[in-house]
Design a protein around this nucleic acid. Structure first.
Lengths: 200, 200, 200, 200
DNA sequence: TCTTAACCGAGACGGTACGTCGGGTCTTATC
DNA sequence: GATAAGACCCGACGTACCGTCTCGGTTAAGA
């Protein structure tokens, strides 16, 4: 018999919720994820600690929500389609790179990845709510290209997506080298063309 | 000008050092990186906390050293070269996948990535001591292939490495899907051949 | 101007406060003042360390409060007055000696003296809250005696108090010799009569 | 079977011993007894910690020796004797008060008392080496006075000593009020004359 | 309209871990 | 073999946050 009852979502004060989420993002930008504490978020949001614990089970979960809020929870619906696959991919990657190079977004995104890498449950939710929808959109664009004969028929779209976006994400995560538009374009061209020489 | 003086490394007890490093790896495997504390490492290694703080500035730095110790700090010298690039790459990736699917190594590797993603200084050291040497080895193998006409002459080896290893690392980090040998082979084949259809 | 704000005393849990004070006295009796630590008091009281640090700035201040609590913070109001000064003083000193020979009280009292001897601020508070009230009570009894012609008119009561109680306290503090009723009676008789011979 | 052997006192380096003792007194004056540490004494004396632990079992014991060294270990042999007991006592007490009002000596003396009050073993040694010799000297002077008819024949000299010196020591320890020459003289006069009125 | 139940700010509380200080022991190199 | 230096294990320090818990106050149903 538990005395703790799930809070009634209908009574939730949405202004408070938004204040907490945005405070979380703000504070990550200011002190980084390692020094981000519930107490700091509460103080920055002008909120009692208990209000946070009432609605979120952990810092990771709260931050995850905050990130979804920031990222706009699946607002994009389709990738551009001009008929030129390479150009479209480069356009999309350039936009992604801009985002990743925005310090506020960069910090938040890194924090999210930290949580995801260590917590399989969060990783699953991340996949469901953000990654899979995005993958579907990407695959949709590739499928169109495939149908238009711009992609080999036997290419696995899952692998194709990884081939294009994987290198970008990795370079950003590991800071192997500056993440530039040139690099992205090279990745697209190389992926499309393949590493092996043309037979001629 | 700092008042804290670096301890004299010649007086360091190496048995103690090794006990700490291996305790760090052990405990990450047992409780995960989030619950890994200096106090726990100290107790598990049968060592005073101060002894840890004397030689490492942070949990991250200690764990980094522990990982280097585990990974053997650049012991590999070259990738296999049977003349068949695709087969050689698949062989190497299979070994990598085995390693990543080993729970002890998996946990340690994830912990390392967590630290690296958030700490640029550690990322730089990681690049210098582990990633760059490995990249050099990979590029060496690809260069041989290129000279043998198995790789297009105008392919940037840096990009080529990313194209092959990036997808593997990402799938592992994000647990997008199980990391299997089949997937790795697909990645190799697709990267070599390219996404675009052969002109014939 | 300090950034640390004093906690709100109205929110204080008095049960916790009493548990801490009595744990402090208990533990001094068990291990002595030198080995008395905040951590030990906290554990013995079933309390977090922070709760102690929230309300007391130091071990000395805490112990001082604990002693006040034990000593009853000025509960006595007057010395007995049977008209026979010597007898009354002997009665009072006998009671004091009993108290000082009670191990529990002895330990606590010694600890208090240790702090007072080294810390002028605590000494001042001790004077205000315990010593001065007691001196006033003692002086009141002596004044009555003086008015009744049992004390020389020109005797300074401050000095008179010191002459009677000083030797007792010193013998106890320094363990010069066992603190007995006989000694106390001798002190009273000698102080009243004086060292010099009667002129006859 | 113990591997630790008592050090050979004949090999002791006396310069080192004196450096340690004087460093102890110096540091008590600088930071007080509570913050006096073995490490601080060692550093201040330019000595290894082990050298201190080799010769003294505890901070208290070391400090005790240091104090003996400072106080001159029973150098005085007799109190002045001009034939006028009151005047002689006042002279001696004035000198004592000067000493107690000397900050360097005050700090050291307070530290010593702290140790003595809590540690019976040290109290016993203090009695044997410092207090009893001094008491003997005091009693010798009083005995002379007694033989000269300046002290009542039935006065216990032990009590007499306490009556004169007890109040002084207490006022100093507790800082009840400033320790002045006037006070000391009052004590002497009152002790000699007694509190009770002359019968006429 | 008036309870009344929940949210909310605030922050005390029992804990765990932090990073530091010093205790006392032991080892190494020097004299 | 005594010494200076300092690494080592250990225990306590005083602080920061954790997650839980009351405490008033306010706010929005429902009787």
């Amino acid at each position: 018999m538990s005395t703790t009852v799930a809070p009634d979502p209908t009574r939730r004060n949405d202004g408070v919720r938004r204040a907490i989420l945005s405070a979380a993002i703000d504070q990550v930008g200011e002190v980084g994820y390692a020094k981000l504490t519930i107490e700091r978020i509460a103080k920055s949001a002008g909120v009692g600690k208990q209000t946070i614990y009432r609605w979120w089970p952990s810092k990771g979960a709260l931050f995850f929500d905050a990130f979804l809020d920031l990222a706009g929870d699946g607002e994009a619906t389709a990738l551009p389609d001009t008929g030129d696959l390479a150009a479209d991919l480069k356009l999309v990657l350039d936009a992604t790179i801009d985002e990743l190079n925005n310090p506020r977004f960069d910090q938040a995104m890194r924090a999210l990845h930290t949580e995801i890498v260590l917590d399989p449950a969060l990783a699953a939710e991340y996949a469901t709510r953000l990654d899979n929808p995005m993958r579907d959109i990407k695959k949709a664009r590739l499928r169109t290209a495939q149908e238009a004969g711009q992609l080999a028929e036997d290419v696995d779209l899952e692998v194709a997506v990884d081939l294009v976006w994987g290198p970008i994400l990795n370079r950003w995560l590991h800071r192997t080298a500056p993440l530039t538009s040139e690099y992205a374009h090279q990745v697209v061209d190389t992926a499309l063309r393949g590493l092996a020489p043309r037979v001629s």
